[in-house]
Design a protein around this nucleic acid. Structure first.
Lengths: 239, 239
DNA sequence: GTTTCTTGTTGCGCTAGCGCAAATTCAAGC
DNA sequence: GCTTGAATTTGCGCTAGCGCAACAAGAAAC
């Protein structure tokens, strides 16, 4: 089992406020695992044997309905915790986690969570904040899906991806992992067709540049204005 | 300040696993507050001064968008915790909590949360499970909004309300607090018009009975079948 | 009892965006 | 280089459900 240096994880939210000694103790229980692109870390419905921290790469968390439809819950980025099913009282993973890039994760057996928390209560506090933040994000998504049209939802989703995983390139900011029209559709509650049409339209306006599984936002600010703009501004004086 | 007996709260999820002595210590920090019907416990954006447990009544948590649209996040039922903004790292309440019935809450100053957690680490664990459960529910909602038609979403919402706050009456199960078409629309991402039409149709079929702010589900099972039924069953043999 | 306000109902027309289908492009394996 | 398969684009018709508007029916206030 590979040794993991505590300096690698000292800044992660889950480990905020821990001493190097504490970190070493916690890390000694972890194993580091490499996940090849497009293979899964765990599957929805499977017993929640482990929880994870993403050290490198990108992981997509998605849920499949009984009818077979998939929706993307989130993209996990470096430093984030995922697969904490047992800690929130679930026996099985409620979603599937798939590496979209070659990735490296730290994995702890779920069984040791209670012991770790007992020894390091701050872990529970930090996990509470992480899960709380995800609850807020999901609420935002519900609000958007309830009140915004598809084009704005796609714009917001792209802006969030850019913020989270944007990499500066020549003509703008590129989303730093492969992502398809289908993926974006599953994040915004629409179809790949509509996403394709929308991106084509934006490409025509010079807002984005895109090819297979790749999106570069050229004009983040203009995209932002499109996402926020009031469709029916002013004129509250029509009697 | 009213005394609260520990036996009243011993069964609540937040206090699972606590001794009577622990409960008394925790309760001595709480005040009990009566909230009149239609008045708010706290407002979105306000400093998160307290967190709460609902002892009696029903509370609606809703979010307002910058454009002024409201959406209902959830209905809090007896025994549930709400307003835990500070514990999940927020300075301000992300939503508004309104009593939909005359209600009674226990309130703790947010400032003592860290101290309480230090003294009773199980509080953090219990809160983590509660917030985790809400994250799961919200994920379910996102999935439904992404994949289901309006009628099924309304059916699922009603069934959840019935399960959570159903009261057996003569002709079926009644939702135990006043709820309008508009509220249901804001829970399911549709308009009050569509909800009204849908309920009228169901009333015609004898599935529900409804009047002002009141809904009785007469045939929960039929409603369930409607919610789950496959719109395009069978016939995968059309060449 | 009358007035006023809130909540709910229903008809009608319209459109955002879905579903289907066909064509195209790109990537990777052989 | 050729083949195969996945991702994407685009046209076309259709419909779920929205938005508007007008009305009805309770509930609460006076």
């Amino acid at each position: 089992m590979a040794k993991v240096d505590s300096s690698l994880v000292a800044d992660l939210p889950l480990f905020a406020g821990f001493s190097t000694a504490d970190l070493d103790a916690i890390l000694s229980e972890a194993r580091s695992v490499r996940i090849a692109k497009n293979s899964s870390v765990f599957q929805q419905g499977e017993e929640a044997h482990s929880f994870f921290v993403l050290l490198h790469g990108h992981v997509r968390a998605s849920k499949t309905t009984p009818a077979g439809e998939q929706i993307v819950l989130r993209y996990v980025t470096t430093g984030e915790t995922f697969g904490v099913a047992k800690a929130i009282g679930l026996q099985r993973y409620p979603a599937t986690a798939t590496a979209v890039d070659d990735s490296v994760v730290l994995a702890w057996s779920s069984g040791i969570w209670p012991r770790l928390v007992e020894q390091f209560p701050a872990l529970a506090t930090n996990a509470l904040q992480a899960v709380g933040a995800r609850l807020q994000e999901t609420h935002t998504r519900v609000v958007e899906m309830s009140t915004e049209q598809v084009e704005k939802r796609i714009a917001h989703a792209l802006l969030r991806l850019v913020k989270q995983s944007g990499r500066k390139v020549d003509h703008g900011i590129e989303i730093d992992f492969p992502i398809s029209r289908q993926d974006i559709a599953q994040m915004t509650g629409t179809t790949l067709h509509t996403v394709s049409r929308t991106l084509s339209a934006w490409e025509g306006k010079g807002l984005v540049e895109s090819s297979r599984q790749k999106i570069v936002v050229r004009e983040p600010h203009k995209l932002f204005m499109l996402a926020e703009e009031n469709p029916e501004a002013g004129s509250s004086f029509t009697p």
